[in-house]
Design a protein around this nucleic acid. Structure first.
Length: 349
DNA sequence: AAACCGGGGTT
DNA sequence: AACCCAGGTTT
């Protein structure tokens, strides 16, 4: 039996029942695919359900404000996905008259829709024969066919895409694309794949050459930046001073607090830090250390320190991005996880 | 081509 | 701590 037939047969037996598999609606598929970019199914599932409940079609999605979209996106990460979706929803309403496109050539023009997502929506909604290439497909193909070209090189991407596209011909594109991804997610897993019960084990190059743990090859050199955020929590009569994040930095368009970023970690040396701030908030200012946290992102390690401020002279309010809001209003604004965690700790709802 | 963009689970 | 997740955009 062919590679493709084995994969599809396995899929029909073992596939999970996922809500976005029960529709041909390109809008619904777009919603699921963008949510699932670099996101596990279990993590994205509740977000998918909430978005579909709130915005059943692309017109409803486009009618929302960007803040409402980001609020619903809160906690999922990679917030540009939410911003791009809002832009795209409005564009689909204008250019495509509210009809979400189903063809690759139209989908690839949409903001936030790349090669993978365009191929996924096109094949799932209209059965267009475009091969998807995601982390699962790279892994399955590199192992079975023994391809050692790094998957994150430009040459590797072209090589794997050509192979994937050749394999999908004369297949049911919708089923085959979902099958090979599901196979990678459940059977040909990154660590400890289930080779002993794998229907493809006899023809698998990696299995036959003891390369399962080596493939796929990925060149990696992600250097992490370390940053130190010192937040100041100003609370008066139930009002809170909040700040919208700056463009060009993490958490763009989300809200946190007035912040002094330092190049040095003062988490174990708060007195030194406060001494350097001496007078900055006025003679009678009282600064209270509230809590500290180490926050891990993919590309940054952030040491976060929260200070409470009382009897201070406001010297933050220089821009329109800083404003007073009630606790209730702040709850409606999108916030990064580290702020949500802080609020949950200090303000019991 | 390389850097940047979150949060969470697994090993 | 390293790796990965139904990737995409910007520089």
């Amino acid at each position: 039996m062919s590679f493709q037939s084995e994969i599809v047969n396995w899929y029909l037996l073992y596939k999970r029942d996922l809500p976005w598999r029960n529709t041909k609606d390109a809008y619904v598929i777009w919603l699921s695919e963008v949510i699932l970019q670099q996101t596990r199914v279990e993590q994205g599932l509740p977000y998918f359900n909430r978005f579909l409940d709130n915005y059943p079609d692309v017109v409803a999605f486009a009618s929302a404000t960007e803040t409402q979209i980001l609020k619903l996106w809160q906690g999922l990460g990679y917030y540009s996905r939410g911003r791009n979706m809002h832009f795209t929803a409005k564009q689909v309403c204008e250019i495509h008259n509210g009809q979400f496109p189903t063809k690759y050539d139209e989908l690839i023009k949409l903001k936030g829709v790349g090669d993978y997502t365009a191929a996924a929506i096109a094949s799932f909604s209209s059965n267009e024969s475009k091969a998807v290439l995601d982390g699962n497909v790279y892994r399955v193909l590199s192992r079975y066919f023994g391809i050692e070209t790094p998957i994150n090189s430009s040459g590797g991407k072209k090589e794997f895409l050509a192979l994937a596209q050749s394999l999908i011909s004369d297949q049911d594109a919708s089923v085959y694309n979902q099958a090979i991804m599901e196979f990678g997610a459940l059977q040909c897993k990154p660590k400890s794949p289930e080779c002993s019960v794998c229907p493809l084990q006899t023809g698998c190059f990696a299995r036959n050459n003891n390369l399962v743990a080596t493939l796929p090859v990925k060149l990696n050199k992600l250097k992490k930046r370390t940053r130190y955020f010192n937040y100041f929590v100003c609370l008066t009569e139930e009002n809170l001073l909040v700040k919208k994040r700056n463009p060009g930095d993490i958490w763009q368009e989300l809200y946190d607090f007035p912040l002094i970023e330092t190049t040095q970690n003062y988490q174990d040396d708060q007195e030194n830090f406060l001494t350097q701030l001496k007078g900055g908030f006025g003679e009678d200012c009282k600064i209270t250390a509230l809590s500290q946290q180490k926050h891990l992102l993919t590309h940054q390690t952030i040491y976060v320190q929260f200070f409470g401020l009382d009897n201070y002279i406001v010297n933050f309010s220089k821009g329109a991005d800083i404003k007073w809001v009630s606790l209730q209003e702040f709850d409606e604004l999108p916030q990064p996880k580290v702020i949500t965690n802080f609020m949950d700790t200090y303000f019991i709802k």
